[in-house]
């Protein structure tokens, strides 16, 4: 029984696979799953050829809009989205980085208005570089991947 599933299967819902282990709880945060009423199982530090260690989240009876799920592309760009119906994978999606990002990320410029007043951050993604860069709509400064800080969704 070496191939035994370590996280039990779900009947209907969404499975998020190939999440970097160290980003698992941020993904949960960004998707607002800590406030969800759905049944959720998750596991982390599983062996992964792709990532070394990976996390998995399974959410019963929940299907995400593309715009919502793509928000995790910033921290889990290689995540795979599996749509489950009756224990079968019926659809697979990969993530695409959205062209704009509202909220989620903090602007790295300490003098940006969004770091001083209750304002939701808003960025345009710059895709011409191999790394994700975010251009702040307000202060016009660039936040790069190394300085990406996620704003908690927790209420």
């Amino acid at each position: 029984m070496e191939k035994q599933l370590k996280v039990s299967a779900i009947k209907d819902g969404t499975v998020l696979d190939h999440i970097p282990s160290d980003q698992l709880f941020r993904v949960i945060d960004i998707l607002g799953l800590n406030n969800s009423m759905n049944q959720i199982t998750f596991g982390t530090n599983f062996d992964s050829k792709l990532l070394g260690k990976k996390g998995i989240i399974k959410i019963s009876d929940k299907y995400f809009e593309a715009d919502d799920i793509n928000r995790i592309a910033l921290i889990a760009p290689l995540a795979k989205i599996n749509i489950i119906h009756d224990f079968e994978v019926v659809e697979k999606h990969v993530l695409t980085v959205p062209s704009t990002i509202k909220g989620i990320v903090k602007c790295m410029n300490p003098m940006c208005i969004t770091n001083h007043q209750p304002i939701e951050t808003f960025f345009t993604t710059i895709l011409d570089s191999p790394q994700i860069k975010l251009l702040c709509h307000y202060c016009e400064k660039v936040t790069d991947k190394d300085n990406l800080k996620i704003i908690s969704n927790r209420q």
Partner: peptide, 9 residues
């Protein structure tokens, strides 16, 4: 205003 982006906001 002394903060960057204050005018846009």
């Amino acid at each position: 205003h002394p903060l960057d982006g204050s005018a846009r906001y």
